[in-house]
């Protein structure tokens, strides 16, 4: 009956309850960053996890979202929430354009990964040189905390906002997984030619997926600027966010609705633990991420959620016997 919504609600409520247990700003900072990454990663998961189209350039959507929102607010004085809608639309449109160009050219697998990376890098160079984006010095949003400006001086409040975004993305993804469109998407991932032979309109399915994917990751970019009130080309279109968006679902469980959220919490939790042991060695957390990625691919390609499912199946089988 619930078809997957149960765990979404439980986990969302658990995170929403944390302000009752702690008032540590370090914790809320950590959680906000994890939630922003989980949102960006859910966008990746829709296209790469469920649809099987591995992108190395989701930074392009993150950056388009972040820059659309901040340029509309700083240059034109547009309201933050309207800027959010515009940013989501821009991310979705960018997805359609890139998807149309690359899927129509028949790019799959490694080639698709490379072309998305190239688009993100192209945008990074442009954003770094253009005056509109503030060039290399970036754009600063004015600090004016209020609901209308989507800025909150209390960190728990911002965490709840980010959580609301993630919750919506989880519900949308679950809805897609349960739908006919979701089944088509999985069919395209498993065997594109077979899906085509069975009458699935492969190009349309992929385009729908990449435009939704771009929209979600763009929303994450908006959250980023609303929280840090600053953006530059290296943050917005940098390879770091493309990698974060890919790592979280890979580790959590690619193609699974809760994969990105679980993966983002696990990776960044491990990163924090490593940093507390190793001190201020630069790049040490990313080294841990990379090792985890390789281990996951080598030994548990279905990620943490895949492992849990295997364990619970084994347990159920034993209990039944």
């Amino acid at each position: 009956m619930m078809r997957g919504y149960f765990w979404i609600i439980v986990i969302t409520l658990l995170i929403a309850a944390t302000p009752l247990l702690t008032s540590s700003n370090t914790f809320f900072n950590f959680t906000v960053v994890v939630l922003i990454i989980a949102l960006a990663a859910q966008g990746w998961n829709l296209l790469g996890g469920i649809g099987g189209q591995t992108s190395f350039g989701h930074a392009m959507f993150f950056g388009i979202g972040a820059y659309t929102a901040s340029m509309l607010q700083t240059h034109l004085g547009v309201n933050a929430w309207i800027a959010l809608i515009a940013a989501i639309a821009a991310g979705s449109l960018a997805g359609l354009i890139v998807g149309f160009l690359s899927f129509r050219a028949g790019l799959r697998g490694s080639y698709f990964a490379l072309v998305t990376l190239a688009f993100a890098e192209l945008l990074r160079v442009l954003a770094n040189a253009s005056e509109w984006t503030g060039g290399a010095s970036g754009l600063l949003l004015k600090l004016e905390p209020s609901l209308a400006n989507m800025q909150f001086s209390s960190r728990p409040t911002f965490m709840l906002l980010a959580l609301a975004f993630v919750f919506i993305s989880l519900v949308i993804t679950q809805h897609i997984v349960n739908s006919r469109f979701g089944a088509h998407l999985v069919a395209v991932r498993e065997n594109e030619d077979a899906a085509k032979a069975l009458g699935v309109d492969v190009l349309t399915v992929k385009l729908k997926a990449i435009s939704l994917s771009g929209a979600m990751t763009a929303a994450a970019g908006v959250l980023y600027v609303q929280y840090f009130l600053y953006i530059d080309a290296a943050i917005a279109f940098g390879i770091w966010i493309s990698i974060e968006a890919l790592l979280a679902p890979m580790v959590g469980g690619r193609g699974r609705v809760l994969g990105p959220l679980i993966g983002a919490f696990t990776l960044h939790g491990l990163g924090e633990i490593t940093k507390s042991f190793a001190g201020r060695v630069p790049g040490i957390d990313l080294m841990v991420f990379a090792v985890v990625l390789i281990i996951v691919i080598a030994f548990a390609s279905a990620g943490i959620l895949g492992l849990l499912k295997k364990l619970s199946d084994r347990f159920a089988a034993k209990g039944g016997a």
Binding site: T54, F56, M250, L286, M287, A290, L293, I294, I297, A298
Partner: peptide
């Protein structure tokens, strides 16, 4: 592709 991506992150950092 993903493993070599992991290796590149590992080596670089």
């Amino acid at each position: 592709l993903l493993i070599t991506l992991g290796l590149s992150i590992l080596i670089e950092n």
